[in-house]
Amino acid sequence: MSKYKLVMLRHGEGAWNIENRFCSWVDQKLSADGLKEAEECGKKLKSLGFEFDLVFTSILSRSIQTAWLVLRELDQEWVPTQSSWRLNERHYGALIGLNRAELALNHGEEQVKIWRRSYDVSPPPIAVSHPYYQEIHTDRRYTTCDIPKEILPKSESLKQVLDRLLPYWNEVIAQEIKNGKRVLISAHGNSTRALLKHLEGISDSDIVNISLPTGVPVLLELDENLHPVKPHEFLGDQEVIRAAIKKVEDQGKVKPSDN
């Protein structure tokens, strides 16, 4: 029997989502459509009667903005929010800023799928000469983390995302849920996938096929031990959600020629 309801979501669309580029730890605000997605997410949760006591976000603006807009639509702006780098998007290393479709053209769709979706393969690490290295690794927000900035990742597999996320889940988020807090996690595609893998026991091979669209709430009903009582559920128009998932999956494919 379900005792707790956990709602998770990938932030609304950002500018680099439109451009099909690996955004990762580059900090970006939501696009105009991303703002609408976050608002619609809030409206959907309100229509279903959701109330929250605590919200968790990453320390990236698109995650925080999404949470703000969702809470505004819920008339729950007063709900406390906690932010941690441990909920950040996966660090895509040297791939940051690159176009997924162009990478597929140059390296093959299968290689791009491995970089994007596999469990234990890390992209090449970001180098000091990378055009976004300084922007990311001198950002003041990373002086607030619970580990020294010097040992923050320079590239991550999904497994490494889960490894850095699990202590925060076990020691902070899970404890709040067990204390009766109704929790919303506004995070990213890969941090949410990693947590779903852990909670639902998704295999290393099957996680490759899990894609999350932007701005769509995911409901997970849990028992007293925080084990799922049924598979996760996307909340909203299922046909629209299926189309959005396909759009995410197609990002790593070669763009069809107009000829």
Score class of each variant (00 low, 15 high):
Y4A: 06
K5L: 05
L9K: 03
R10K: 08
G12S: 09
N17I: 07
I18K: 14
E19M: 14
N20P: 06
R21P: 09
R21M: 06
C23I: 12
V26R: 15
D27M: 06
D27V: 04
K29Q: 09
A32G: 07
A32C: 02
G34V: 07
E37T: 10
G42I: 08
K44W: 08
L45C: 11
S47E: 15
S47H: 15
L48F: 13
L48S: 10
L54P: 00
L54N: 00
V55P: 04
V55Q: 01
F56H: 09
S58V: 09
L60T: 09
R62P: 01
W68D: 14
W68M: 11
L69N: 11
E73K: 08
E73W: 13
E73N: 11
L74Y: 10
L74P: 10
S83Q: 10
S84L: 03
R86Y: 09
R86Q: 11
R86I: 12
A94D: 12
L95S: 00
L95M: 00
I96G: 01
R100L: 10
A101F: 05
E102V: 03
E102Y: 05
E102F: 01
L103N: 00
A104R: 00
A104S: 05
E109H: 07
K113P: 00
I114R: 03
W115S: 00
R116H: 06
R117W: 02
S118G: 12
Y119T: 04
V121Q: 06
V121W: 01
P123S: 05
P123E: 04
P124G: 06
P124I: 05
S129F: 02
H130D: 14
P131F: 04
P131M: 05
P131Y: 03
Y132I: 01
T138L: 01
T138Q: 09
C145V: 10
C145T: 15
E150G: 09
L152C: 13
K154M: 06
S155E: 05
E156T: 07
E156A: 07
E156R: 02
L158Y: 09
K159M: 11
R164L: 13
L166D: 01
P167S: 02
Y168F: 14
W169I: 02
I173A: 04
E176C: 11
I177K: 12
N179K: 14
N179T: 07
R182M: 04
V183D: 07
L184G: 03
I185C: 05
I185P: 07
S186R: 15
N190G: 13
N190S: 12
S191K: 15
R193M: 13
A194N: 07
A194R: 02
K197T: 14
D206A: 15
I207N: 01
T214I: 08
T214C: 11
E221T: 06
L222T: 05
D223G: 04
H227S: 12
K230G: 12
P231K: 11
P231Y: 10
E239R: 04
V240I: 04
V240T: 13
R242C: 02
I245Q: 06
K246H: 04
E249Q: 14
D250Y: 06
K255H: 10
